[in-house]
Write a protein that binds this DNA or RNA. Sequence first.
DNA 1: CGGGTAATTGACCCGGGTCAACAGCAGTGG
DNA 2: CCACTGCTGTTGACCCGGGTCAATTACCCG
Lengths: 243, 243
Amino acid sequence: MLAQRLQAFTRLSRDDCAALDRISGTSVRHIKARNDIVSEGERPLVARLILDGWACRYKSTEDGRRQIVGFFLPGDFCDLNVYILRRMDHSVGAITRVRVATISPEQMNALMSHSVRITHALWWHELVGASIQREWLLNVGQRTAFERVGHLLLELFVRLRTVGLVTDGHCDFPVTQTHLADATGLTPVHVNRTLQDLRAQGLIRLERRHLHIPDPDRLTGSTGFNPDYLHLDHEGSHLDANA
Amino acid sequence: MLAQRLQAFTRLSRDDCAALDRISGTSVRHIKARNDIVSEGERPLVARLILDGWACRYKSTEDGRRQIVGFFLPGDFCDLNVYILRRMDHSVGAITRVRVATISPEQMNALMSHSVRITHALWWHELVGASIQREWLLNVGQRTAFERVGHLLLELFVRLRTVGLVTDGHCDFPVTQTHLADATGLTPVHVNRTLQDLRAQGLIRLERRHLHIPDPDRLTGSTGFNPDYLHLDHEGSHLDANA
DNA sequence: CGGGTAATTGACCCGGGTCAACAGCAGTGG
DNA sequence: CCACTGCTGTTGACCCGGGTCAATTACCCG
């Protein structure tokens, strides 16, 4: 899954994939839905890789307002280098049941000295994460509720597609309206109404933890979505293992 | 200036500082206020270091709404590794006249293989940047106008302090109300009113490109500011050049 | 079947946006 | 030295997108 994710950057060798698979197999933990994988204030000792399930990064204010600052989908890496910092400045929570691989700094170094391709691919992944962060700020700071929610759904849809979790416009979508609210800076009530809007315009179908986007292009148009920020156009083609 | 910035992470050796100074001296460009240093869509070929002046990172929507997603102060690095990506997903604009050093990938590699301390310090700087991004999302997504503006002013104040640009609670502050509006997702009109509020409560003095915060602790309290996200507590003390 | 989580609806309200005019001030050029 | 221009800050009147509160109805899982 991680290999698949990284191949959006560059084609990896059989050997690279094997190395990634190996690292994905060591010290796997299971986290129940609604539990934290890491909590703010903890000392970060390892990097983590989401093997299965959905998680989110979030921060809270003193008085309990909560902002989701990112979603982790299967194949996503949390924080290549966090262990440089003394304390976590945010938490990571499991949305569904999650399988995570924990990766020690040593393993990380070994992996990165194993191949330039992998190293670059991991940096790319990190840079894409930062880019998504920026787009979210634009989303929350400047767009209307309608655009915000549609934009977010579309981003997740596209990201799921790159890891092969979309078939024929359909995908599993375990995120609740409250999650969407916390991610967009809206209230759950208003998210609900906004979703009804999107549905009424035939842009999405969302029910029972299942999302269908019949015509992604149309949704792209009406939300101001521009996929460039996901950097999916094989940036590292010069590293292609088969080139 | 960069050395000073990085010493918030760990103490550097005389040699490290010299290396940083050397890199700061090569290919220095001057950018006029209100001009772009880098523009969205460009191919990123080099990393950049702000030597002097203020800049900001921003993104725009199709129809011209603009979100500032970060400020660069003197000593700040823009994007260690951007040249991995094919195109810039955002622009960097000069707020004042700016002096920037441009740093080639080769120089970057040389610098990082020169010393682990520097390498870690640069990674730390990058991680802090990401952390600030997240805090901004919390800021824009969850806080009131009053908290948002106060929080932002305080963050910039604290960051300026770490590079020695605050004396006795005073600092230069070339950011206009329109900048503040674009950074907080508010309108210039409302920023203006909010500043008047902050002034009325004696929390800030801001006039003629000059900011004074008489009692940072009080402002901290009333904006929900928690400096942890800036990771200023010498995370890399184990790397201390004099330890 | 029961208890907790998630979705939906309606009535009402408010923080912040919009529009428009004006004032201050810095730089620029004649 | 002054008039001009363009940016920045300020104010007032009015409005609206989205928030709040509260109740109700699905769900889902053990």
